[in-house]
Write a protein that binds this DNA or RNA. Structure first.
Length: 361
DNA sequence: AAAGCGTGGGC
DNA sequence: TGCCCAAGCTT
């Protein structure tokens, strides 16, 4: 038993001190982001919601151009609701997690149908919308409507875990972090407070190398006092990623078109365009076996090299087989011939663009 | 309730 | 290079 007195530690942070320091910091360091209202401006709930959906598991830098294109093309939720789903998917292509785009479209239509085109200002009503979970409902309520909601995203999880030195690993610690985060949320300026907490996590309370010397909460932070800030929050170990393999078929017609299909609406890359391919499985494919998955009979030519791509839960290695077909070739059921110079406007996810680049080079 | 679901950048 | 990470949601 160690009888030495424990090192000095800050008292448990209080809502008043933390919120006050964070808001004062935010007033000096507020970032100008395309979806963020300036000081004194009224936020547009549509833009707040759109940005929050895009920012799910996605960096600010990646979202920027997508947000600009979406709001230029669809300036209001009613405009987005009136768009065909495939146009939304094509505009979303490359951003990933495509269920977000399908839910985005469904949500826009729900806001028009259930709420007359105006986003609800209550967390519970927001939570009932497609693609809106606990985080997004709280974030929109706070940021768009200045309601005293307490969003908990990865940034705030990290800030709170360090502030209170919560050692339990995620995701198990989440209920406790949510409880602690709620105790900090002020009744004054809750929207600015939420953005301040997220900005702090994004720019100061960084995962690997927190800039504690720049942090307005350094004096309140128990993990800092204990010298363990860099190691919090703890996380459960991740499952390993298996490798799956397949063969993709690039059918090129003499009139400069290639054959694309639409993927099923649910599951991986749901609703997006694809090159026809074999299944993606652990075992590699013998040539004769892969040929059975070709979309049409042709003189298929195996191109050198492989296209590699990594998804959230598996690595993928695809061979590319190419065939040249006469301009009069009909498209097989469920597929269509798309002009090569029109591919930019298609709902092609990144892995499919890699295949096309490989096969058309 | 654990697993499925994308992508690009940083180290 | 391989792993980690990013303003999570759905089933």
């Amino acid at each position: 038993m160690d009888s030495r007195p424990p090192p000095p530690q800050p008292d448990s942070p209080t809502a008043e001190t933390v919120a006050g320091r964070l808001l004062a910091w935010y007033d000096r360091h507020r970032r100008r982001l395309p979806w963020r209202a300036g000081p004194g401006e009224t936020p547009d709930p549509y833009r707040v919601w759109l940005s929050e959906i895009m920012l799910q598991q996605t960096t600010v830098a990646t979202v920027g151009p997508y947000f600009e294109r979406f709001t230029a093309r669809w300036p209001t939720v009613a405009a987005l609701a009136a768009a065909p789903l495939d146009a939304v998917l094509a505009e979303w292509a490359g951003l990933g997690y495509y269920a977000r785009a399908r839910n985005l479209h469904a949500c826009a239509r729900a806001v028009v149908e259930r709420h007359g085109g105006a986003f609800p200002d209550e967390e519970a009503a927001l939570l009932a919308l497609p693609g809106v979970g606990a985080y997004t409902a709280a974030a929109v309520a706070a940021i768009a409507f200045d309601r005293p909601a307490s969003p908990l995203d990865g940034n705030i999880e990290r800030v709170v875990a360090r502030l209170f030195a919560v050692a339990e690993p995620l995701p198990g610690a989440k209920p406790e972090l949510r409880r602690l985060a709620a105790t900090l949320t002020p009744s004054a300026r809750p929207g600015d407070y939420a953005q301040a907490a997220m900005d702090l996590g994004a720019t100061v309370c960084l995962p690997a190398k927190p800039k504690c010397l720049l942090c307005p909460l350094e004096a309140d932070c128990r993990a800092r006092a204990l010298g363990i800030a860099e190691r919090l929050p703890a996380k459960a170990p991740k499952a390993e990623r298996p490798t799956r393999r397949g063969v993709a078929f690039l059918a090129r017609r003499a009139d400069g078109r290639v054959l694309l299909r639409r993927r099923p609406d649910k599951g991986l890359l749901g609703g997006m365009a694809e090159l026809p391919s074999t299944d993606w499985r652990t075992e590699s494919w013998a040539e004769a076996e892969a040929l059975g998955s070709a979309p049409l009979p042709a003189a298929w030519d195996a191109l050198p090299g492989l296209v590699r791509h990594t998804f959230t839960h598996f690595h993928l290695e695809l061979g590319v087989w190419r065939a040249e077909l006469p301009a009069a070739t009909d498209s097989p059921a469920g597929a269509r011939w798309v002009p090569i110079d029109g591919l930019a406007g298609e709902a092609l996810p990144t892995v499919m663009r890699k295949l096309l680049r490989h096969g058309l080079a």
